[in-house]
Amino acid sequence: MYIIRKKQELGPQVKEYVVEAPLVAKAAKAGQFVVVRLHERGERIPLTLADWDPKGGTITLVVQEVGKTTQELGDCFGVGDALQDVVGPLGEPTEIDRYGTVVCVAGGVGIAPIHPIARALKGAGNHVIGIAGARTQALLFWLDRLREVTDELLVTTDDGSYGRKGLVTEPLKELLATRKVDRVWAIGPAVMMKFCSLACQEAGVPVTVSLNPIMVDGTGMCGACRAEVDGQVRFACVDGPEFPGEKVNWDLLIARLSAFKEEERCALERYRQLIKEATS
């Protein structure tokens, strides 16, 4: 049983869950993810391991509510409730090494998955510079946790409500121009990762991104998660999810994310209707 031990609101439509999953917690490494199914009729959705506690046997997930499944998790699952399935850890772990100076860029909920990566990189002796950005202050979270695992932390908001006004790519470009940066990690919405990758490519600095295509099994069995990297078809769930950002075919990735747009909308509307009927 994968029991929710803790649930906390981090911002509008963003929640943190601490879930019992001892086997996953024992094997987890930075960069990996789990596949979660809420109930018997549920979809399998991938979520990155934001943290884990091998001793306590728990994992931490940070979930942004974007559609039916994530919304239902937020509305209907509280402390003490059990998730039907939690499978993992899946995907290849981040390649942690002593690179020198690394920049870890996080956009929006990307803050959660970048956290263990920054921690591992710092643990390996790198000088870690963090950049965290969101649309507005309310959407920022875990800044204290990020400060703990970085040597420097820069924060941006699109509307200037906190930190520097603008997009994460701006401080990234400045760092690339003024400092010796050995490697960059960028995690967030596909568009943000695309522009970070372009900036790094121009500066000639290797960049790693974590791809988030639609998945089904997460174990290499279906090919739903295929992405084009360096002209080759790769399965993000087993070959990734991390890939060299400058080699990713972003337009394809972004297009494939909309494969089930209509069905997703229909599912969300039906869910809202059911909730309305149940509560009225």
Partner: peptide
């Protein structure tokens, strides 16, 4: 990799294991 091209495994897994033929009663489309 165009949208609309499935591997048989994805197509059949969605339908059989995930019961997509009963979408939206089941969540997988």
């Amino acid at each position: 990799s165009l949208i609309g091209v499935y591997s048989a495994n994805e197509f059949l897994t969605r339908v059989n294991l995930m019961r997509a033929y009963r979408f939206p009663e089941y969540d997988t489309p």
